[in-house]
Write a protein that binds this DNA or RNA. Structure first.
Lengths: 195, 195
DNA sequence: AAGCGCCTATATCGGCCCGATATATGCCGG
DNA sequence: CCGGCATATATCGGGCCGATATAGGCGCTT
C-alpha cells in the first residue's frame, strides 16, 4: 500500500495536517503496521489536493506558519472506498536479526547471544508500548489492531526465548565463504541437482 | 539491513552469481525474512567487486552469456563479520490488511470479510511453503529460521480466525471523513488535550 | 522445421519512499 | 537571554523495487 492510499485512509478518520498524520498515526503504536515519512506524506498530500481528492483549509495562526488541514472531498471518499475494496497486498516482514541467525555458523557465540538479547529487548519494548496503548481503553478497529500486535509480539518473544539455546549452539566453527557450510534446502537441492 | 550487507551474508554461504542470490535465497521460503531485487543485487555486487570485498570469476559457457560468479575475499570476510556483529536493526512489519481493518467502520461488511479471506489464504499459502521446506529435512540455522516462520504464521492465522467476527461486526455504518469516527487512542488523546 | 514460450542470466531505468536536513516560530527552563 | 524543544512545512540525495530490455538455448507444438 502506497503512501497516497495511506493518506486517504487516515484522512477518512477525520481531517488532519501532514504533521498530524505522522505524529498521531504512523509514530507511536501504529508504527508496527504502517509507516510513512514526512518526505512522502507532504508530497502525497499536495498531489492529492491538486487532483481534487482532498480539500485544503489553512488555519493561519498569527506568527506561526499556517497549519494546512486536509480533508477528504466527495471524490476523495469514493477513491478511498475504491482503493480499500481491493484485495490486500501481502504483508511485508523483514528482519535483520533473521539474517544474523542465518549466519550463526560464521559468527561467534557471543555475537549471536548479543543479537538475540538486543532483539528480545526491542520486541519487549514494542510489546510494552502496545499494551500501554491497549490498556487506555481503546475499542473499535484500533483496539482490534493493538490486540493483534500484542498477540504477535508475545508469541514471537516466547518462541525466540524457547529456541535461543539451539541457535546459539550453532554459532562458531565454520569459516565464511567455505562453500561447505550450508547445502541450502533439500527442496532447492532437488532443483539444483538437475543442473 | 541494506542489500550490500545481504549480499555479503549470502556469499558467506558459498560463491554465487547474482541470479543465484535471487533465486536460491530471496525467492522461495526466505522471502519471508529478507528480500532483494535484481535491480539492487547487480549494482551491489558490482560495487562490492570494485571495492575488493568480493572476487569475480567468469564462467564462460560457450554460447550462453558468461555466468559471473562472486566469492568473498579476505577483506570481504572481515567486512561481513564486522557488519553482522552490529546489533540488529528493528524488524519491519507492514500490512495493507491492517490498514483495511483500521478502516472497517467506513467499509462494507462484505469488503472486510473478503479482505480477511484473502489475507488468510495468503498466510496459509506461505505457511504451506515453509512447512514443505522444513519437511525436506533442513537442519542448522535454515531449519531454525523456517521453524520460526512456521510458528509465526500458525499463530497469526489462529488469531485472525479467532477474532475475525469481532472485526466484521465493526464494518459499515460510518461515513468516511466525518470526524466523529474514531477518537484515536486515549493515550494520544491525553497528549492532544494539552493543545 | 519453424515458431513460440520458457528458463537462465545480466543489466538499466523510472519512480517511490526513507532519512537527513533546512527553515521558521513560540514557549519554557536555566 | 539563550539554548533546547515542540510545532509545522518542505526539499533533496540516495536506496531500492518493479518493469523492462537483451540474448541464447531448450523443448513443445503446430
Amino acid at each position: 500500500m502506497n503512501v497516497r492510499t495511506v493518506c486517504l485512509a487516515l484522512l477518512a478518520h477525520g481531517e488532519a495536517s501532514g504533521y498530524d498524520l505522522k505524529t498521531r498515526w504512523t509514530d507511536g503504536p501504529f508504527l508496527h503496521f504502517v509507516d510513512a515519512s514526512f518526505g512522502s506524506i507532504y508530497p502525497a498530500l499536495a498531489k492529492l489536493q491538486a487532483e481534487g481528492l482532498v480539500s485544503l483549509r489553512e488555519e493561519s495562526q498569527p506568527g506561526k506558519p499556517p497549519r494546512k488541514v486536509y480533508a477528504l472531498t466527495e471524490t476523495g471518499k469514493a477513491a478511498f472506498i475504491e482503493a480499500m475494496s481491493q484485495p490486500p497486498g501481502e504483508d511485508i516482514f523483514r528482519s535483520s536479526f533473521a539474517m544474523i541467525a542465518l549466519c550463526a555458523p560464521f559468527l561467534d557465540r557471543e555475537v549471536i547471544a548479543r543479537a538475540v538479547d538486543t532483539r528480545l529487548a526491542q520486541q519487549k519494548a514494542e510489546l510494552a508500548e502496545l499494551e500501554q496503548a491497549l490498556q487506555a481503553k481503546c475499542g473499535g478497529p484500533i483496539g482490534w489492531l493493538l490486540d493483534w500486535g500484542v498477540t504477535h509480539f508475545k508469541n514471537d518473544i516466547a518462541h525466540v526465548e524457547a529456541t535461543r539455546k539451539a541457535l546459539e549452539d550453532m554459532a562458531g566453527g565454520t569459516e565464511p565463504g567455505t562453500e561447505v557450510a550450508l547445502p541450502v534446502c533439500a527442496c532447492q537441492a532437488e532443483m539444483t541437482e538437475q543442473a
